[in-house]
């Protein structure tokens, strides 16, 4: 996964160092891929920062759930570990019996370090790959997006409709407003989703958590 990100980042004109440091400092899989994609398309600084903010706002909810579960941890530890939240670590931790902050840090910290190493390996091997192979890596990001999306929407017709609607909306919008369509379509799509998708699907109760790490909310804890 980190390799796919590294491929895109390097193509977008980032130096190897910037590519790796982004994994260290920003640490948001889809968010970083979005940044690299937007950079490659020549988006403005403001558009990129705003998009990152909106896309990563969901970690606010995840951390609220996580730190709700580990209330006893000291403040400095909580502050430092708040950087580690990603969808996968969040889902795993919320499904565990264990509620110690150190378990979470072990789990999420490992994911973070792996992601950084993925970027480093990606940067190193890209120089060695023949052109056709490197070209084929372009698809890896989209393969990742599709692979994340399909199991998540598979269980719900409402979500399928919402995803298709957003895709069409973005397709049309980008003809008029270029790069801004990404964020506008994302937000308009989510607003439409408030009406299209029913609460249970998106808030977790009737949801198959094994299939999806993105739609778990705090409810996960109550279900377990």
């Amino acid at each position: 996964m980190g390799i796919g990100y590294a491929a895109l980042a390097i193509k977008a004109g980032l130096t190897p160092f910037q590519t790796v440091i982004m994994s260290v400092l920003i640490y948001a899989g889809a968010g970083q891929i979005m940044i690299a994609t937007m950079l490659a398309q020549g988006a403005t600084l403001f558009a990129i920062v705003l998009t990152s903010f909106v896309l990563n706002l969901r970690y606010f909810v995840m951390n609220a759930c996580i730190f709700n579960k580990v209330e006893d941890a000291p403040l400095p530890v909580r502050i430092l570990s708040s950087h580690l939240a990603v969808d996968e670590s969040f889902a795993m931790f919320m499904l565990m019996e264990e509620s110690s902050i150190w378990t979470y840090i072990g789990l999420a910290g490992f994911a973070w370090v792996s992601w950084i190493f993925g970027a480093i390996i990606g940067v190193l091997i890209l120089n060695l790959l023949p052109v056709i192979v490197a070209n084929s890596f372009n698809i890896s990001l989209y393969a990742l997006f599709v692979a994340l999306l399909v199991p998540a929407v598979k269980e719900s017709k409402d979500l399928v409709i919402l995803v298709i609607l957003t895709a069409i909306l973005n397709f049309i919008l980008q003809l008029f407003i270029g790069n801004w369509s990404l964020i506008v379509a994302t937000i308009l799509g989510a607003v439409a989703g408030m009406y299209i998708v029913d609460d249970e699907t998106i808030l977790g109760e009737s949801y198959n958590k094994d299939d999806d790490s993105k739609s778990n909310s705090c409810k996960t804890k109550e279900v377990q």
């Binding site: 889809a30 909810v61 979500l159 995803v163 957003t166 379509a185 989510a190």
Partner: peptide, 24 residues
């Protein structure tokens, strides 16, 4: 919470289309 949980789905949808058509 619902709005924030919907964002990843719509963001992924927007990332895929039409970007996937410009891979090559």
């Amino acid at each position: 919470e619902k709005f924030l949980n919907l964002i990843p789905y719509t963001a992924l949808a927007a990332l895929i289309c039409p970007g996937v058509l410009t891979v090559d």
